[in-house]
Write a protein that binds this DNA or RNA. Sequence first.
DNA 1: ACCCCAGTGTTAACGGTGCTCACATATATT
DNA 2: AATATATGTGAGCACCGTTAACACTGGGGT
Lengths: 186, 186
Amino acid sequence: MSTLANAPYHHGNLRQALLEAALIILDREGEAGLGLRDLARAVGVSAAAPYRHFDSRAALLEALAVTGFQRFAATMEAVAATNPVDPMSAMGKTYVFFALENANLFRLMFSPQLKKEGRPGLKMAADAAFETLRHIVGGDIRAGRIKALAAWAKVHGLAILLLDGQIAVRAGEDTEALIAEIIGSL
Amino acid sequence: MSTLANAPYHHGNLRQALLEAALIILDREGEAGLGLRDLARAVGVSAAAPYRHFDSRAALLEALAVTGFQRFAATMEAVAATNPVDPMSAMGKTYVFFALENANLFRLMFSPQLKKEGRPGLKMAADAAFETLRHIVGGDIRAGRIKALAAWAKVHGLAILLLDGQIAVRAGEDTEALIAEIIGSL
DNA sequence: ACCCCAGTGTTAACGGTGCTCACATATATT
DNA sequence: AATATATGTGAGCACCGTTAACACTGGGGT
């Protein structure tokens, strides 16, 4: 009888539960605050249990980053589906907002700790996300690869500088408007 | 006489030696590979000795990042002193090259682990570096704050994307030329 | 209906880490 | 010279990721 009472021996689908709990902890505490023991306890399982589903902590982080890239691509596609008047700047704003709203996840996605070499799953997820991105803005990119890379760099850099608080948003200044202005300035 | 013979009890100036050794290890192994025990052994001192000079590992990392910002500012000033024909793009290239040539140090300088809140020394060093940067390109920046931020974002983003290998440099392509092109494309 | 076995969870422990404390030693001060 | 302060040592703490040996459990083959 594992139906009622407390804590069946087998969790059901632990892997998913771990990922969900990990995303919450990551969001709140950042990558450094995501320990396997805490995570396991949060899901109500022993410290060694996660190793049945992830080879290592790094593998768990990689899985999180992969879902991050998937969410990222989905967000971008959702915006593109609204057929905005200015697709490029709409995508840019979405890019930056995604970073700000999912700060720790975004950081993890581009964390140097998860070096793409030897982590092919992550590289594939990232490439897939950027491939859809490239496809979405494809029409506006015939200007050439250089322009596309420059736009990407600007948007990505803006996201990171905002994330790190390097770009000071002045008192009473609207962050959203500032972002729009910077993106608009080609 | 601690002159000759081996290993005087007091190191002389350990703090400096630690920083120098740490910079080397950081460059080779990255932040994750910089352990206090290894570092202490590399300098020929016990594992607890570094704590006489740094409150914690994070404080040591902060000190490294601070010197990183100082070197960064110095590099920028050195280039500016050559009175390049196109100061903005010269600074941009230097920015990106600094990141590529000091990859792990650059990553540390902008590491989310060293959140500037509660780490005022680092924030001051970063602000100082960017202040000199702003001063150097001041003449070209009257175009307005937005344009300046956009340029910064582009250069910073380019540095990071290259660092993470996200921007694929095609076979036989000259990285330096690619950087120059992207920076040039305003 | 049974068995058993692959999958999943547990407990205990290992090595390594950052860090602290009590103590030893060298340098500076008076 | 005597003492105070700074600096280094060694042992050990708590915690972490990780592994190994064992326990439970549900499902598939006979």
